[in-house]
């Protein structure tokens, strides 16, 4: 037994079926997995005890991720390896604990995130250049919030890392702002491509995956 509950951060991936569950449902899924794992999770006191699980930058439904983070506390000494092992034994396929440790950085230190967008479009090879061109200029999007739609210039919040064609698929690697105040959802880039270039078309499948998370400087890997 620890005198004080110890903070733990788990880096995990959310892929396959799991990318289609919402943030709220992820919370439920993790909560039941905690109980199955019999890990010494710390619960809040009071009438309705619950594990105080905090997640980093929420992910849109439909977007996969290789680097999500959640914080919680444990009441007993336990190694990171043991935590991962016990969580992975009870996580559904698509949810994988990669690393567990005592966190140093705070979630609001997050500044950027990398995404890989893969488009299965006809004649992908010929579309790489127009996409590069589209994203090298000014990037202005229509952002829809609860208050309404407004036009926002996100040029400084988007860094294009690579536009390539692999297996006849168009692959886009982007670093987007993940800062609380200026978070850029990758869907805006897809919407921009649809409106300016007509890709992906209605029948074209595409995937979006968050591949890395960085601190404010855009270089130091967040962990």
């Amino acid at each position: 037994m620890l005198s004080q509950p110890q903070k733990i951060r788990v880096m995990f991936s959310k892929t396959g079926s799991l990318k289609f569950i919402s943030h709220l449902d992820l919370n439920r899924t993790v909560r039941s997995a905690f109980l199955r794992s019999r890990l010494p999770i710390w619960y809040t006191k009071g009438f309705n005890p619950h594990p105080k699980t905090v997640f980093s930058v929420p992910l849109s439904v439909g977007t996969a991720s290789l680097c999500e983070f959640m914080d919680f506390r444990v009441t007993e000494e336990i190694t990171g390896e043991a935590i991962c092992e016990r969580l992975n034994a009870v996580f559904p396929v698509g949810l994988r604990a990669i690393e567990a440790y005592e966190p140093v950085k705070k979630f609001h230190d997050i500044g950027w995130a990398d995404y890989e967008l893969v488009f299965e479009i006809p004649d992908a090879a010929s579309m790489a250049e127009p996409v590069r061109e589209l994203l090298s200029g000014e990037i202005v999007i229509d952002k829809t919030t609860k208050i309404g739609t407004r036009t926002v210039d996100i040029t400084s919040l988007v860094r294009v890392l690579d536009v390539t064609v692999e297996d006849e698929k168009l692959v886009l690697k982007l670093r987007l702002s993940a800062d609380d105040a200026s978070y850029v959802n990758p869907k805006y880039i897809v919407e921009l491509m649809i409106s300016k270039l007509g890709i992906p078309g209605e029948k074209d499948d595409y995937t979006v995956c968050r591949t890395a998370v960085y601190c404010k400087d855009g270089e130091t890997i967040f962990r």
Binding site: F20, V61, T207
Partner: peptide, 23 residues
Amino acid sequence: MKIPERILKKVEKPARYTGGEWG
């Protein structure tokens, strides 16, 4: 899961359709 992702992306509550649950 063999439903195209673009369909799952546009329907309400896509997790109704994916399967893959624990258990």
